[in-house]
């Protein structure tokens, strides 16, 4: 009998602590599959954030170090500059990357730091209990926007990937989702491309992943997965926002 599915070598045998239906577990799964497939386990270093994924190092069987909230891109910069042979990625939530860590992210991108950012957008602060994130949609209820996000007072959902696509040092940005088998396959392809961009030394690569948070969205899992396509992806359209990987491959 042919084995078509097994636990990736770089995924530890530890049960995930994530809620049922949470996107983080799926993203971890496809990333560890890629680490195996691309043979990166012995040269990759991950930097997970404060956030629901703070314990990512309990699951990834690779070198990992915690980061201060939002500082992932700066930590990765220091690490990559000190050790250019390493493959360095940050794993960051939307509060982490798009609020407190905006400056670090924008400037790492602008320097064209040769690192990969996995940006998990679940439109809320998961770990701290479902407060408004910069990516919270207008009208969306969170614990700090109990009447729904009001753009006149709280602003609009911030589209970081679109902003960063304007930055010259960026090699590759794609927005994906992990709410259906098709989308998960696309997400995996995008992350592969992002890692490859780094391996090829092309500069800053980022994959934004729309990721369900059933717990803080107060939805059951199918509802949450549906909401990603029906509502979230309207504000955050899926697709490639910047890609220079083809250009340099041609040369």
């Amino acid at each position: 009998m042919k084995k078509i599915y097994s636990r990736p070598k770089s995924l530890k045998k530890t049960a995930f602590h994530y809620c049922p239906g949470c996107g983080h577990s799926i993203i971890h799964r496809i990333m560890t599959e890629l680490i195996d497939e691309m043979d990166l386990q012995d040269k990759i270093i991950g930097i997970p954030p404060p956030g629901c994924s703070v314990f990512a190092y309990n699951y990834f069987d690779i070198d990992m170090a915690e980061s201060a909230h939002g500082r992932g891109a700066a930590v990765a910069t220091g690490m990559k500059r000190a050790y250019p042979e390493g493959i360095i990625f940050t794993y960051q939530g939307d509060g982490d990357l798009a609020a407190i860590g905006t400056a670090e992210t924008v400037h790492a991108a602008n320097r064209g730091e040769n690192i990969t950012v996995i940006f998990v957008n679940n439109a809320v602060y998961g770990m701290t209990g479902g407060q408004m994130a910069p990516t919270t949609l207008v009208g969306q209820k969170t614990t700090t926007t109990p009447y729904g996000r009001d753009e006149r007072m709280e602003g609009n959902a911030l589209r970081i990937s679109e902003m960063l696509a304007l930055v010259k040092g960026v090699a590759y940005i794609e927005r994906v989702a992990v709410n259906s088998p098709t989308n998960i396959r696309k997400a995996k392809k995008a992350i592969r491309k992002a890692f490859q961009a780094q391996i090829d030394g092309l500069g800053f690569s980022m994959v934004e992943v729309l990721s369900p948070c059933p717990t803080n969205w107060r939805m059951d899992e199918p509802e949450a997965w549906q909401w990603v396509s029906d509502v979230m992806a309207k504000e955050f359209p899926l697709g490639v926002l910047k890609d220079v990987t083809g250009e340099s491959h041609a040369s």
Binding site: I45, S67, A74, T77, M79, E104, H107
Partner: peptide
């Protein structure tokens, strides 16, 4: 760096790399 916060976190990253 873009700020002292970024600079010290770059220090942290480089120190992690040994």
């Amino acid at each position: 760096a873009e700020s002292e916060i970024a600079a010290i976190n770059m220090v942290y990253g480089a120190s992690l790399a040994g």
